[in-house]
């Protein structure tokens, strides 16, 4: 087990190196740089050259990259060109928001999508099954930015039930926090929930046909235990794999959702960094998100082994 974890972490190293290279060079392909963005209309050659020298942007790209990596290895993510705040501290400041957004979207999957998928499979071809299928198709096919806009229009502007944007920390005011997070997490979680629901349904249908389900019935197992302990547990194995992959989608989707609901999360931080050509901040946040994704996938694989005895690392 520990050997497997160590191996997985070692495999993550080349992945992260690759991501750091892509993140570093990609942003530099975009026309304009930090200095043009900083100076804006006041741009002139001398000032620009001075600033570039100041930030080390006049050095060759390879040298810049190596300096950044060297600092990273020392645990120093660098400082934002704009605010001069440490990149690591801005990420840590924004992390709880994105984390909460993801957790809440994830909870919808667990509390709504999985039970709905299971019930749909048990009542195959019933009205409920058709409704679930329709929701599933809508969830998969509606883009999250459109859903977010509609949610704001209907529930914030028209009904006035939820705020249209902004954020309050959970520890400051839990209820206000949940009100702020409700719409964003639905907008973000809808498509993932739909995928999970479809997956649970088809996986359950497959499992319910298995001999050991018939065997459990022949043993006198009650319907409730049959479904939960004999069928759903087995059906969740592929669902967990899908959930792990979908976590990447949640991370990516949070960029747009945070922007629409003006939530101060990592996605919005990265977006601002891109518009400002704040190279260091952008590189840092992308690398951080990538590392998060690698860890989530490792966790998924470990949970997988926990449920399925046929997999041992």
């Amino acid at each position: 087990m520990w050997r497997y974890i160590t191996k997985r972490i070692l495999i993550a190293i080349p992945v992260l190196i690759g991501i750091s290279i892509v993140a570093f060079f990609l942003i530099r392909l975009v026309p304009g740089d930090t200095v043009t963005a900083l100076l804006g209309a006041n741009y002139n050659q001398e000032q620009a050259a001075a600033l570039r020298a100041d930030y080390g942007l006049d050095k060759p790209l390879i040298t810049q990259y190596l300096i950044w990596v060297k600092n990273l290895l020392k645990g120093d993510f660098g400082h934002s060109f704009f605010t001069n705040q440490a990149v690591s501290s801005s990420i840590m400041e924004r992390l709880p928001v994105t984390f909460e957004l993801m957790i809440m979207s994830f909870i919808y999957c667990l509390l709504i999508a999985i039970p709905l998928g299971a019930v749909a499979s048990l009542k195959k071809n019933s009205l409920l099954d058709y409704l679930a299928t329709i929701f599933g198709l809508l969830g998969v096919s509606i883009p999250n930015f459109w859903l977010a806009t509609i949610l704001i229009l209907v529930f914030s502007l028209h009904m006035g039930w939820f705020p249209s944007g902004g954020f309050v920390s959970f520890f400051a005011d839990p209820i206000a926090n949940l009100r702020y997070m409700f719409l964003p997490s639905i907008a973000l979680g809808a498509s993932v929930g739909a995928v999970v629901m479809r997956m649970t349904r088809s996986s359950m249908l497959e499992i319910l046909k298995q001999d050991y389900i018939e065997m459990a019935r022949a043993k006198g197992v009650s319907q409730k235990i049959l479904i939960i302990s004999h069928a759903l547990k087995n059906a969740l194995i592929p669902v967990i794999t899908v959930l792990g992959i979908q976590m990447g989608y949640l991370l990516g989707g949070s960029v747009i959702i945070e922007q629409i609901f003006s939530l101060p999360g990592i996605g919005r931080l990265a977006l601002q960094a891109i518009t400002n050509r704040d190279y260091i901040l952008m590189q840092g946040s992308i690398l951080f998100v990538a590392a998060g994704f690698v860890i989530i996938n490792l966790l998924v694989d470990l949970i997988y082994a926990l449920i399925n005895p046929q997999i041992r690392y």
């Binding site: 050991y212 018939e214 065997m215 019935r217 043993k219 006198g220 009650s222 449920i307 399925n308 005895p309």
Partner: peptide, 28 residues
Amino acid sequence: NYREMQQIRGKEISTVFQDPMTSLNPLH
């Protein structure tokens, strides 16, 4: 009904199915 049969199945009448490879739940 199903509930009454539940009492009988496994206790008074039990079953062995054809394929032992698929009759046991792999996760238990």
